[in-house]
Design a protein around this nucleic acid. Structure first.
Lengths: 238, 238
DNA sequence: CCTCCATGTCTTGTATGCAACATTAATATA
DNA sequence: TATATTAATGTTGCATACAAGACATGGAGG
């Protein structure tokens, strides 16, 4: 694997493990010294991540993790639901059960999820919960979609990190279990339905999300001020 | 638009218009002089195309359009069918008809297709027939999937070009018309079914595809030779 | 005390130079 | 003539140097 690829991989993994603050700046020189290579190579990695939508450059300012706004988040969840349920539906049409060694692969993935869950490894837990969807897509026989799904999962993580969606890990895990169980016992339609529910509940969670307001901190700091009460433009609390 | 972006766009358009031989080499220096920029910029464009799977580099040999093998083609058509029918299904679930200005956009796109078809503009025809799917995805409200669909369409073109799939342009056009008509009159489920058929017939066409044999030209050139008839390894014509 | 401007510093943007390697052509040799 | 070896050529791989711009700092002027 080239150095550039290892840099972008490392960054992707760091995001999925929630070890990278979503507002962090990715300085070219910093990364170059960190990976002991030239800026050219770092740039190559950043360009790759940019093509995948994970990273954005502000000219002459720096590289930043993409800020996923509400509209993009909607498209993201829609896309994931469409792809994953579509993949399951497409597989179901073939009328054959999932091959045993693939079932086993999914089950051992679930075991790892459970392990991380019980051990309280937040990073690994988060990584595995996202990675499960990629693993499933691979098992269903479409690497092209699996790869794109990985990128979408990364972007989803960036969204949830910034908006602190509650994200019940145990519940996600159990829904994963239900999907694999349906798949293993040949109830393919059920698996699709589980997946639809698993990915369809995002907006009910997102309603709890407080809108991120760049002036939020400032506003809050100023609101209780005794003086200058009516000085600023209209609009108190939303 | 940056120079790098214009290079990659140009290449993508050239592929979709079938103006770029699928075995063509994309030399960095060539492109640099062609676009009057340095190799650095060209490299940036190639890296972008590589991240999208459109181009592949052979170390120290050059950049080439990706060779889509049979397995990848299968995934490609599956992916497109999953995404596009999924998009239609997802839209149908919302229970609202397509907004009038979007219907109109699709219809004028159809008009352009017809124009190119009747005028016999092969390149533009090919471009529009592929672009229709991207346009539709955009109209259905998911830019993320629309963009990925564009890349998939490019790869599909690369496959069909190399394998000379018959590809009846007029039939494709008429299927597009059927989809838009269903969409315009609110028969959303019908639209999905049309799309499924439109994208589902690929393998029946691919059966007609002659397997590409790297020795094909050589073999053909040697076959009618009167001398040395039994010299080469077994296997005459397929 | 506030505002405006100059300047220094830090960042990415781009070109270029050289190294490493693959292929091809030429040449020597059996 | 066939083959192995060597030289030449052309390509990408990578590092580096410098340019261009954004931002922060400090000071002068009001």
């Amino acid at each position: 694997m080239t150095v550039a690829a290892s840099i972008s991989n490392k960054i992707v993994e760091a995001i999925l493990s929630q070890q990278l603050a979503p507002e962090a700046r990715l300085g070219e020189s910093e990364l170059a010294t960190l990976f002991n290579c030239s800026r050219t190579i770092v740039r190559e990695a950043m360009l790759d991540l940019a093509a995948r939508g994970i990273v954005t450059v502000i000219p002459r300012r720096g590289w930043f993790l993409t800020q996923v706004d509400a509209e993009m988040a909607r498209e993201l969840y829609d896309a994931r639901q469409i792809i994953e349920t579509g993949l399951l539906r497409h597989f179901a049409q073939k009328g054959r059960p999932l091959e045993p060694h693939l079932v086993q692969r999914l089950q051992s993935h679930l075991a790892e999820q459970q392990l991380a869950l019980e051990a309280g490894h937040v990073g690994r837990r988060s990584y595995l919960l996202g990675n499960f969807h990629v693993c499933l897509a691979e098992c269903l026989g479409n690497r092209l979609l699996a790869e794109k799904l990985r990128d979408f999962t990364v972007l989803t993580t960036l969204f949830t990190m910034r908006h602190q969606t509650p994200g019940d890990a145990r519940m996600s895990y159990e829904e994963h279990v239900a999907i694999v169980e349906a798949l293993a016992s040949g109830r393919l339609a059920d698996a699709g339905e589980c997946m639809r529910e698993h990915l369809g509940t995002w907006d009910s969670k997102v309603h709890m999300v407080r809108e991120v307001d760049p002036l939020d901190g400032l506003r809050r700091a100023l609101a209780p001020m005794p003086s200058d009460v009516k000085g600023v433009a209209a609009g108190g609390k939303k």
